[in-house]
Design a protein around this nucleic acid. Structure first.
Lengths: 205, 205
DNA sequence: TAGGCACCTATACCAAAGTATAGTTCTGTC
DNA sequence: GACAGAACTATACTTTGGTATAGGTGCCTA
């Protein structure tokens, strides 16, 4: 039966998660309200399999807390739990050797899956985490573009001039200008740089 | 017992994976050498739980194959398998609804874990995949920029015109042109769009 | 078969971008 | 106090970008 330690300063969050894990599966769960209390508990017990650390919690000091925990108990897997961290932080955590990153937006079922995954030796990271920056009502704007306009936009996104684009597409420069003008209008931007930036932002090319 | 279908045109790869999965855990595995053969097999059987598609395989046509498979059998989970794809492709695959992305660099044990993970309804994506794209020898190019040039570049990255930048910085338009010219020279690009694109790519702003 | 649309071209014009040269002011350094 | 570099301005110029109008072709569909 896996030994799990959850450290979170929000009592409600901590205790409900603990209770859920114990009922739903064969986990033995203990809890702590801050990092030092957690480390103290770990010193008393022979071995925890997994330590779940809230990212915002007394004693954490950003990712330093993660570092401390990992150095003190190298054999114990550590997962970071956070409701607010951005992708930057999450990536840094993984680079610093965390075995998992658990956003609080996860469903309870997914949490269990994630924990099992980590316990089996894998590293859990929700691939789309932080992707919510732009919920991507995808390319409603870009759908109106004709084939040629799309091709023109694609070349715009490499920073080519109208003349170069004309050569690449095998048409006259005037034609390219026409396409560019239409693209700008359809995308609702005022110059080619903005068009390129917008397309890149939406990961079109 | 989960039903798995592996489609890969490399016989050795396909068959060894299949054999391994069957011995190591309770999977029922079938195989196909290309996408069409795979879809044909799926039409014959009531339901596969997981379809593993090689990214480079006859019939795939990039991510179109993924699309085809997902549309034809919406109830079956689909994971992409690839030895060469870059992070771009991997992300696109996930955005297009793949349930997992499996790089061939995975260990056998991790493969099994990943498959179980996907079968349990989660989406598997190795968090550090393709992180080697740009280790970011950061801004060797950008270090030479003076303060004003940097500010100018920043505004360039929103797609502003020289006139607007001049207003924002409280200087004459000519001055902005000068800065822009210097920025282009120092970055080794030939117009403002390329400069903006480059800066964005390096995540400067 | 008539209309609509994507696509291409032409001419023309004005605005914006980019280049070149020259000069001023300020600041920090040798 | 001389010098170098960053920042700013001015004038003048060429190239590129973007707009406007008008017209030609081919394809598809009502």
């Amino acid at each position: 039966m896996p030994n799990i330690l959850i450290a979170d300063d929000h009592d409600l969050v901590r205790d409900t998660i603990a209770a859920y894990l114990e009922t739903v599966d064969d986990f033995k769960v203990q809890t702590a309200a801050n990092l030092d209390a957690a480390l103290e508990l770990m010193r008393g017990i022979d071995s925890f399999d997994l330590l779940i650390l809230d990212y915002h919690m007394p004693g954490m000091d950003g990712l330093n807390g993660l570092e401390r925990a990992r150095k003190a108990f190298p054999a114990t897997k550590v997962a970071l739990l956070s409701g607010v961290a951005n992708r930057e932080v999450a990536n840094k955590a993984m680079e610093n050797g965390a075995n998992g990153f658990i956003p609080k937006s996860l469903t309870a079922a997914s949490l269990v899956n994630a924990i099992k995954f980590v316990l089996s030796g894998e590293r859990y990271f929700p691939f789309d985490f932080g992707a919510a920056t732009t919920p991507d009502a995808p390319s409603a704007t870009f759908a109106n573009l004709s084939d040629r306009e799309m091709q023109t936009l694609e070349q715009l996104c490499i920073g080519l001039s109208n003349k170069e684009i004309a050569r690449n597409l095998g048409v006259q420069e005037v034609t390219v200008k026409l396409h560019v003008k239409n693209v700008l209008a359809k995308l609702g931007v005022s110059n080619r740089t903005q068009a390129a930036l917008l397309a890149k932002e939406k990961h079109l090319f």
